[in-house]
């Protein structure tokens, strides 16, 4: 692993405890490395804050219009380099430079994207595994993402809904617990509450939803407490969940 990869891994929190402490030790002794780390950190922060701005349609048509009129003027005026044309040449050069810089940022970002995309691909492939423990392992991969990635959440939700093994659905429910602040995740968990049949998965869902005080869960929880075909211990957990949400 070269120095840059190490820095990226460190900033993304992908190092093991040992690698991390070793890296931090080398930071104190190597000022150059430390400076480089700071540069990368700035870059990462910038990437995080950067929003892709698209040129609006009017801007584009204005630009086209300007270009056209400029071309007509150029034709009429002969090919002498006036101050004005110099100025537009400078503007073009500036645009090129800016484009280049942005492009560099993008390649940096794409390195990071590539890594997480590889993880996502890995996760999705293992999700199709025949073996239950293999699929549970795929669910565990989701723990490596610092932030909830859309595709990761979708895969987890899909698994919670459709996996044939209750053991895998349980693992998915527990993995989603980390992301329970997301609206999409809450909706999926609440929905699963009314369709799930496995008692253990139900208890996990009730725990997560009640700890997060998800009010949307109140109705399905109340249904569980009065349903006829539900085991007593699940009704108890549902009661407990209602108490936690409503702070009675």
């Amino acid at each position: 692993m070269n120095k840059e990869e190490k820095i990226i891994d460190y900033l993304q929190g992908e190092m093991t405890y040992e690698e991390r402490s070793k890296f931090e030790r080398s930071l104190t002794s190597d000022p150059v490395l430390k400076a480089e780390l700071e540069e990368y950190r700035l870059l990462f922060d910038e990437i995080d804050q950067m929003e892709i701005s698209r040129p609006s349609l009017t801007l584009k048509s204005n630009f086209d219009y300007m270009l056209e009129s400029e071309m007509i003027r150029q034709d009429s005026k002969s090919n002498v380099m006036t101050l004005k044309t110099w100025r537009s040449a400078a503007a073009v050069a500036a645009i090129l430079v800016i484009g280049f810089l942005v492009g560099q940022n993008w390649t940096q970002k794409s390195v990071i994207n590539q890594q997480s995309q590889a993880l996502v691909a890995d996760m999705k492939r293992n999700m199709k595994s025949e073996s239950v423990t293999g699929r549970i392992e795929a669910v565990q991969v989701s723990q490596q993402f610092a932030k909830p990635e859309n595709e990761v959440l979708n895969t987890l939700i899909e698994t919670l809904k459709n996996d044939s093994s209750p053991n895998v659905r349980l693992a998915a429910a527990e993995a989603l617990d980390r992301y329970a602040a997301e609206e999409k995740v809450r909706t999926a968990l609440v929905r699963q509450l009314s369709t799930e049949k496995d008692p253990f998965v139900l208890i996990a869902l009730i725990n997560t939803l009640s700890e997060q005080k998800v009010e949307k869960a109140i109705d399905p929880l109340q249904e569980l407490t009065t349903a006829e075909d539900v085991a007593k211990f699940i009704k108890d957990e549902a009661h407990l969940g209602l108490i936690k949400i409503e702070k009675i």
Binding site: V168, L170, A171, P199, I203
Partner: peptide
């Protein structure tokens, strides 16, 4: 590899080794 879940039961497990190819829960 294994995945064991039980609602009311206790689980007692003695491993002769821990296989590294897939998860244990």
């Amino acid at each position: 590899p294994m995945s064991v879940k039980t609602v009311y039961g206790d689980i007692e497990a003695t491993f002769s080794s821990v296989e590294q190819n897939s998860s244990v829960s």
